[in-house]
Design a protein around this nucleic acid. Structure first.
Lengths: 130, 130
DNA sequence: CGTTGACTTCGACCGGGCTCGAAGGACGAG
DNA sequence: CTCGTCCTTCGAGCCCGGTCGAAGTCAACG
């Protein structure tokens, strides 16, 4: 099974392209993380569109920056409710952005301290820096 | 019970000063994360020294930058084995440093994409930026 | 002395985020 | 046909990093 029709990928292809596993894709869908219902073939097999893929990339970014599944689910629900809730979505994203920035700053700070420690070891042993 | 003797804190004081819970402190100790055996009073109560506190701060930094418990345990073990294993410790820290840097870069990248998304919403709704 | 209260150990449990396996259905290749 | 592959659902299991509670001990205060 290569492509199906053209536009419309199998779950395996979607997994390939997103770097997620088929198990994870099904899990995300179950948990209401998809923006829109994932299509099915007559046989009941999932069909992913490019739109789905695009969302999965965004979803992956949100996950990779630490947004909890619950919150992504909430965001997806807002998007699904085609309403004038854009400000809510925006607020959600902005709150996330803030948290990520804070966390970046914190990690950077900790990293500095770790670097100091590394510096101490370097100055005490024969191991040359870098 | 306030201070005990002077220098030498109870677990509750150590918890206060590190921001960890007493449960977590005991858990860390059980898991071999401490640099040196934590002292005990005659009654069997833990006594934390300033040295312990200093290490707990470092430990917290390692955790906050994502070093797994296992690896911290390995590092602590190296430190406990008073040997010429400084190069191993250094290697461990440098590997961690690398991972943290990579992760910072990745998160920053994802954040950029999220910012773009935010920008789109901002340009589409009445909500003012900032 | 008795009561308080902070401590001890031990082992069970929790929440998040997957990860996996069993059982069964479709379909194309040979 | 039959085989093999890929899919389906469902529910259980796993790893991590704590988190909690029960039951017991000890020192100090009144």
């Amino acid at each position: 099974m290569t492509t199906m029709a053209n536009e419309g990928l199998t779950i395996a292809e979607a997994a390939d392209r997103t770097g997620l596993t088929t198990h994870t894709l099904r899990y995300y869908e179950r948990d209401g993380l998809m923006l829109a219902e994932v299509g099915r073939t007559s046989a009941g097999h999932r069909v992913y569109t490019e739109r789905d893929l695009t969302w999965l990339v965004m979803l992956t970014r949100l996950r990779a920056t630490g947004m909890p599944i619950r919150e992504i689910s909430a965001y997806a629900a807002l998007c699904r409710a085609r309403d004038g809730n854009e400000d809510e979505r925006l607020a959600l994203l902005r709150a996330h952005r803030r948290r990520v920035l804070d966390q970046l700053a914190e990690v950077t700070d900790h990293l500095g301290a770790i670097d100091n420690k590394i510096g101490l070891y370097e100055s005490r042993t024969s191991t040359s820096p870098r």
